[in-house]
């Protein structure tokens, strides 16, 4: 991550491109911190989504893209005045583009303590194959 986006969260923002309904709700989204790891048969993406519950999370896979939108479950209760803020109320949005070598049917996701683990299994076609010589 660029240091600039660390200092100014605003630089991190991308506009939500999920239709009018979404845009009306909140146009600004924040890109969460994430990490991609590769193993022999899958890619694993670890995304930090503090404040997001299972219900507020949407993962869609289409056309070589995996889109992830996380809405925060917590809203400032009535009577609370904010004195100092470092976090944003905006939803998280992360779009990862891949080369279609992923088996979209078998994508798995697990959310625990604000950390999401997504497993993107590589499709059988692209896996290295051993050819028996006859």
């Amino acid at each position: 991550m660029s240091p600039l986006t660390n200092i100014l969260p605003g630089f991190n923002r991308t506009s939500a491109a999920c239709g009018d309904a979404c845009a009306a709700e909140n146009a600004q989204t924040v890109r969460p911190a994430y990490k991609v790891n590769e193993t022999t048969d899958a890619y694993t993406v670890t995304v930090q989504l503090p404040g997001v519950a299972k219900d507020g999370l949407e993962i869609t896979a289409e056309d070589g893209q995996v889109r992830l939108v996380g809405r925060r479950a917590w809203k400032t209760p009535e009577g609370w005045t904010s004195l100092y803020r470092e976090t944003a109320d905006a939803a998280y949005e992360l779009v990862l583009t891949h080369d279609d070598a992923i088996d979209a049917e078998k994508i798995g996701a697990e959310l625990r303590d604000g950390v999401l683990n997504v497993t993107l299994p590589k499709s059988e076609v692209t896996k290295p194959r051993k050819i028996a010589v006859s």
Partner: peptide, 12 residues
């Protein structure tokens, strides 16, 4: 990141 809030009886 840390946020600070208060209401009548508590600081959060």
């Amino acid at each position: 990141p840390v946020d600070l809030y208060e209401d009548k009886a508590n600081t959060f």
